[in-house]
Every structure is written in C-alpha cells, then in structure tokens.
Amino acid sequence: MGCNTMAKDILVVENLKKYFPTKKKGLYVKAVDGISFTVREGETLGLVGESGSGKSTTAYNVIGMYGVTAGKIYFKGVDISGDAGKRPLSLKKDLQMVFQDPGTSLNPQRTIGQILALPLKVHKIPGEGERLEDRLIQLLETVELPPEYIYKYPRSIGGGERQMVAIARALATNPSFVVLDEPTSALDVSVQAKIINMLIRLQKQFNLSYLFITHDLSLMRNLATRVAIMYLGKIAEIAPAVDFFRSPKHPYTQMLLSSIPVISGAEEEMKPKKVPSRGEIPSPVNVPPGCGFHPRCPMARQICLEVDPIMVETIPDHFVRCHLFAGAAEAREVVGA
C-alpha cells in the first residue's frame, strides 16, 4: 500500500489481527480483523471509528500493551510484532503514547514531578552533570506549564493541564513516534483547541509522527495528513485528508460525515446528505457475513451479503473497501459522478 511515498514509512502494519477469546469456546471477539496501513515520517495518520470499531485495540497493539494474534508491525523497518512484554528499552523510548483520559492515566497518588521523572530515570536521560529537576522544569516549559507544578498532584490541576502533563511524559524520552488515543475527547472544546495546537507545534519542533485515534472527523480535517476509517475491526477507507473530505467514497464514511453536528452552512454543504444514519455497529463477536457494514448500508446489494470486499485503490493513495468500487472502471465512474 502507498508505494508512492515521498517521506519514509516509520510504521508499517500488515494484515494485523487481534482476537480476544470469549467465555464460549471457539468464539472470538474479532477486535481487529486484518488491517494494513502505514504512517510516514512527520505525518499524522488519523484512525477514525466508533466505539467497538477496534481503533483503540490497534493503538494498544502498536504500543505493545498486548501481543498480536496475526500479522506484522514494522517500526523503522524492524519487526516489533513479537512478544509485547519483551520489547527492548530502546523501542519503548522511541514509541510513546498519550491516553484518552488524563484523569486515569496519571497516578493520583504521585506528584507531577514524580510522574515525569519516571521515564527519565528508566531511560537514564539526564546525563552526567545534568540535574533531574532542571530537565523536569524544561519538560513542563515544553508544554507551557509553570515549574511549581512539579510538586502538585494531578487532582489539583485542570483537565487540560493534566493532559499537557501526560503529553510531557510522552515526550520525556524524545520519542519519534507518538500514539495519541483520543487525547482530547474528555476535554472541553476551548481546552481541546489549545492541546491540538500544542500537538501541532510539538510535531514540527521534534519531527514527530502521530497515530491519532479519534472518533471526531471534524478534528481530523484540521489535523491529519491522512485519514483511515475503521468499522468492525477493518479499515473501510483510507486517503489523504484533503481528498478524503472532498470526495468521501465508502457509504459508511458518508454516513459518519452526514451525522456530524456542524455550526455553519458552509460545513453543511460538505456533508453528503444521501446517507442518513441508521442501525448500530454489531457486536464484534457476531460479525455479519460478507461486508460487515451491509446491515446498515443503504446501497447494499446481494454480493455485499455474501462476499467481504477487498481494498481497492480508486485514485492514487485513496483506498476503499467496498463492492461499489470493486472494478477500477466502475470506481472511476462513481468518482466522476
């Protein structure tokens, strides 16, 4: 996928699967069911989906919270899909994560100084002659927080500030790749704006690559280089952001877009009106046969009930997994329409 890369691929995920066993024998929750994507150096890939789509499971697989069922993950050309518990320290240093809710990702019983010092101590970062405290203050400055926060506890600061601490913790080890798991969905919009702008600034400053997990398509329009839509453990559509929002192809993408509450007429015009939302995402234990989206899809045909579609490249770098676009010629036709 995506052979016409200008920048190097920093993360390559190939046919990743993650199944969780259920209490019933032989029955699995297919949280992630064969997805492939790449993240290029210095870009932001937005991985968008509803709850139950498998987007967080994908993130946890990449970060190594648990091992993969099948498939490969390459980071800077090295296969990291082996035992997640035995990742080398150097890899943990280079790959960092910011969690959704800073209320639960910062230990309430530890001061911010202690929280930020942990990655520094583990990775022996302040070298000879450098003081830990100086480095902590410097880290807080990076995320625009005052130095006295070293001695504060997470509960005594605001939600946005907590997320800034979580970002500082992720950046403490000078990583090159950061997984952001809905970092602003627990925050108010005015705070979200600040965090997003900070993430954009830090990305430029430290040449970071982001895998941004979110359910918010409007946010991705303003942040992502490329956008991937996940549905029931599979990627439905993946494309460069500009192209993605100009001509969304997959019916699910269109349903998502037309469901977004917007605040202006200009935005309203960007929403495809023809796909009103209906139905709900099925349980990943009982995935429907054929295309997983067919029970909710207004354009479902007989083939959708029987055959799972494969990913096709409709125009360069724009991939869709839908029978409507199965033939390239047919795809061009729909694009033209």
């Binding site: 943990k92 960092q96 969690f99 639960t104 990702s105 910062l106 309430p108 942990l118 990775h123 979580a166």
Partner: peptide, 11 residues
C-alpha cells in the same frame, strides 16, 4: 489502570 499501563510501557 492506565497509569499503571503507562509506567509499564515506558519500561
């Protein structure tokens, strides 16, 4: 808890 996960992930 995520704070435990976070400390494990950092090594």
């Amino acid at each position: 808890e995520f704070y435990v996960k976070a400390s494990e992930l950092t090594g």
